[in-house]
Amino acid sequence: MLLRYIGRRVAVSIVQLLGLVVVVFFLIRLMPADPVARLVGLNASKEAYAQASHSLGLDQPLLTQFLQYFGLDGRGGGLLEGHLGVSWVTNGSVLTEIGQTLPVTIQLLTLSFIITLLIAVPVGIAGASRPGGAFDRGVFVYGLFGGSQPEFWWGLMFIFVFFFKLGIAPAPLGLVNPMDMPSEPITGFILLDSLLRGEFDVFLDVLWHLALPTLTLVFILSGPIIKMVRQNMVRALGSDFVLYARAAGLRESTVTRYAFRIALAPALTLVGILYGVMLGGAVLVETVFSLGGIGQYAVRAVLAFDYPAIQGVVLVITSISLGIYLVLDLVYAVIDPRVARS
């Protein structure tokens, strides 16, 4: 039953993804842009231009390019076999490049979201327990304050205070000390790899480097998530079954648990959506701290009209988002039995 549901969802997701790739493929080629000129420079000779155009395959008819990209032209090595192509700018495999940048972002986001939730859930619940109380109003002001400035601004502020003034944070120059030789990645997630190798000093060092970017993201994310938890909690606490639970003399902790379970589902949706958005949208923070994440990679690809890289990024980010939504739906079904039936 459950497996069939998951299977169906995955199948639908794959169809959605393929459709998206097709659309993106043609859309970027319809843009009034000239990637060849961008590559060889405006002063390049006609021959150099033609040669570059040929080597990129852009002199072929659109349909041929399309078949080639998908690996349907008989030569193989296309998308359907898992190849995302070669970057026009770096000549490296797009898949490998994404494999290097994506873990950086996922690591940052996951850490930030975990910390945000650890803060936002109790704070939201506490605010909801006495709506309009001093604590609740304080949280409201914090949300306004945190959300009113863009994240790169907060990032710069934190660098200024913690690095320049106090000197307790590392320079915003990536995740590892630039002097250290990075070891061969195992999973690509540096934190995980260092633990797997048992290099605890590296682990702590990376955490130290992650502190400010994480702080910045937590600062930005906690406002809306606290607000969401609080609002859902207020609604849940005002519902019939919570009032009845009080009337039945249940302990306050049980009553809170009852309400929280109801409030959780919509808050999780927001978290899932935010996560998907931040995958591509953490670019400002990545840039400020020179982390080299997928957001930065995407921006570079777009600016250089690097079509294979753009397509690859869109494909990967969308599949992760779809995966998150699937997981959310499953989590939903676990916490709310009414969903499982329908």
Partner: peptide
Amino acid sequence: EIRGKHIGLIVQNPRGALNPM
């Protein structure tokens, strides 16, 4: 302690009064 132990309550909309989860 008094609620639920010494005074029991039954309400109008029983499905709404039960925890749906």
